[in-house]
Design a protein around this nucleic acid. Sequence first.
DNA 1: GCCCAGGTATAAA
DNA 2: TTTATACATGGG
Length: 276
Amino acid sequence: MKCVEFEKGITVSPVKDLNLGETLDCGQSFRWEEYDGGYRGIAFDREVVMKLDGEELTIENATAEDFEKIWRGYLDLDLDYSMIRDSISALHPVLKEAASYAPGIRILRQEPWEALCTFIISQNNNIKRIKGIVKRLCEGFGERVGSGYSFPTAERLAELEPEDLSEIRAGFRNKYIIDASRKVADGEVDLESCRGLPYEDARAELMKIKGVGVKVADCTLLFGLHRIEAFPVDVWMKRALEKLFPGMTADDFGEYAGIAQQYIFHYSRMNPKLFE
DNA sequence: GCCCAGGTATAAA
DNA sequence: TTTATACATGGG
C-alpha cells in the first residue's frame, strides 16, 4: 500500500475491501456526513474528507504522517477483509449472503471514549436521533476543529451535572454520560486496559459505569478498542438469531464475530422483510 | 394517539 | 434466576 502526499492531502492505493458509505455510515460511528462526493468527519481532533475512486483512497487535509499514525489504523487497512469474509461466509449460508451484501464494511478503530459515549447514547434509540444528539454534544462541549467540533473529552464533561446536558436532548441518558465521564476522567474506569484484558474482565471494567450493560460494553470493545471477537446483540441481532440463525449463539460466530455481526446488522436493517 | 429505536436499572415474581 | 416496566425523545 502506497501513500502519496499532494497539495490538499494524501492518496493511498491500493485499498481493497472498502466502501466508505458502508463503513462510515453503518451504525458504528455517528459523526460522518456525505460531502462533495465523499465523507467528511472529525476524529482524533482532525477534520478530513475521504473519497474513494476504485482502489484509490483520497484523504483531504491529512499528511503521510497522519496516515501512519491515525487513518491507517482507523480504517483497519492492515486487516485482510477478503480472507475474513471467506472465513465468515463458510460458517452459514445466510452469513455468506450478508457478507456479500456489503463487502466494503470495515470495523473502525474509533477513540475508545467516543465509542463508549456514543453507544451509551444509542440505548433504546435510533441512529438518526443518535446522530443528532452526538452532534449537539460536540457543538455544545467540544473544541472547534475545521468546520465542526471535536468530540468532548471525558475531563470536560466530568465538570458538568446531568442537567447541564439538557440541550443535547438525550433524556435519561444524560446521567449515564456524566457518570461515564467522571469514572473515565478520574481513572476509576481504564479504557486502555480493556485492550488487553480477558474479554469478560474488559466487559466488567466498562460495566462499572451506570447505563453500561453488556450491549454498550460490547460495542465499545468492538468499535473503540478493536476487540473483533465482540458480538454485540441488539434488537436486530436478536431477530436475526431467532429467524435466520436458529440455534446459533454468539460463540458460534468465530474469532471475527464482530465483523460477522456488523455484516448481519447492516443486512438485516436494509432488508427488514426478512423478518416478516 | 400509538409504536419503535444498535438497552439498562430496578423491582417483583 | 428470570421477567416486567419505566425511562426521554422524535420520526413514522
